[in-house]
């Protein structure tokens, strides 16, 4: 009997210590990154409930084992065997039924919490998201804006309609807690209500190829006023750009995600940079060189494998883009300006 009392106390002490340890590392009441969405609140509260119960279960198993290892160890010179008992049906039934109750409770809680994260606001702002190796592009259909940054108004539900151009990607902002895969051939939905103004990042969390690690884009939660200002500014930029061929070209390179792999400032990315490209001599994988003129740029867009630049993977990683001659002329005009 005294063993049971002693081990009972030890279970409680260890459970408290375990929870305190998790809490000390900042992971008990929330999954650590700041809470930046209303959905995260219900997710974190389920997490906290699990940490409490799991700390207890951990102690429930580890405490009697450690206690036994100390108290029931074979001492020097001691002979003989352990106490002979083979089982106890009521105990077995007990520790089958008690966890069953826990399972039902947590499954209910889990389903409830899932429901909370999926709660629909009919006035949600719709934003189209396009994922492709290795960029995110955001389109605000109401305003005709295309952006490489996702700007969201605080305390307003948004629904992202996500599509992939190539392989599976996954949209995850750790501060929002929620994650949703983007699957080719269908539109998946990501519903979130940002609750904290700040700069975050969407991080692609489904392995999508060589530069998967770098498939990150800024997610900026603004006050309503700042958000409206940004929208207005972007609308002007889009309108201005639409007036010239190079402006339209620039919009096309954002919309199609070109600049995810081709930098405009000389930074090495997945593909060759466009800085000082036009008119330069380009060395190819087969050892020849070619002049980067209109024809070369058009060929590179329509047949990425025809002439792969030296030191870049062959066959090329670049998808084929179905662009019109006018689009290509505009993009070429834009590339010409990058000096």
């Amino acid at each position: 009997m005294r063993h049971f009392v002693a081990v009972g106390i030890w279970v409680i002490v260890l459970a408290v210590l375990t929870y305190a340890g998790i809490n000390a590392s900042g992971l008990a009441t929330q999954m650590n990154p700041v809470v930046a969405s209303t959905q995260a609140v219900s997710i974190d509260s389920l997490w906290h409930g699990e940490m409490v119960v799991l700390s207890f279960l951990f102690a429930l198993i580890v405490a009697p084992i450690t206690y036994s290892l100390v108290v029931f160890r074979r001492r020097k010179g001691e002979t003989g065997e352990g106490v002979h008992f083979e089982g106890n049906t009521s105990l077995e039934i007990g520790w089958t039924v008690a966890p069953l109750v826990l399972v039902v409770v947590f499954a209910y809680w889990g389903a409830y919490s899932l429901g909370e994260t999926r709660r629909v606001d009919p006035n949600a702002l719709v934003i189209n998201v396009k994922a492709q190796q290795f960029t995110w592009t955001f389109e605000y259909p109401e305003y005709g804006i295309i952006s490489k940054e996702l700007h969201l108004p605080v305390n307003q539900q948004v629904v992202l309609k996500m599509q992939s151009a190539d392989v599976i990607h996954s949209f995850w902002v750790p501060e929002f807690r929620v994650k949703q895969d983007v699957v080719p051939g269908r539109v998946t939905e990501y519903r979130i209500t940002p609750s904290l103004v700040g700069d975050y990042k969407v991080r692609c969390s489904e392995l999508c190829g060589t530069s998967h690690a770098y498939m990150e884009s800024p997610v900026i939660v603004n006050e309503i006023a700042d958000y409206d200002a940004w929208i207005a500014e972007q609308k002007v930029i889009a309108e201005e750009a639409g007036k010239t061929p190079e402006g339209q070209g620039q919009l096309l390179t954002v919309k199609n995600g070109c600049v995810g792999c081709h930098s405009i400032d000389g930074t090495p990315l997945t593909g060759p940079t466009w800085l000082n490209l036009y008119g330069a001599e380009v060395e190819l994988t087969d050892g020849t060189t070619v002049l980067a003129d209109d024809a070369y740029i058009a060929q590179s867009i329509l047949e990425p494998n025809a002439a792969v630049v030296k030191d870049y993977p062959s066959p090329s990683l670049m998808p084929v883009f179905a662009l019109t001659d006018e689009d290509i002329a505009n993009i070429t005009a834009y590339i010409k300006t990058l000096k």
Binding site: I65, S68, G82, V83, G87, P99, V103, A107
Partner: peptide
């Protein structure tokens, strides 16, 4: 998925009860 906890729990509890009041060497 949560149901897996039940048979797994039976194993853990049974191991603990096996160790309890043994003559343990390590």
């Amino acid at each position: 998925t949560l149901l897996v906890a039940i048979p797994t729990g039976v194993k853990f509890f049974s191991w603990v009860a096996t160790i309890w009041q043994g003559k343990i060497t390590t």
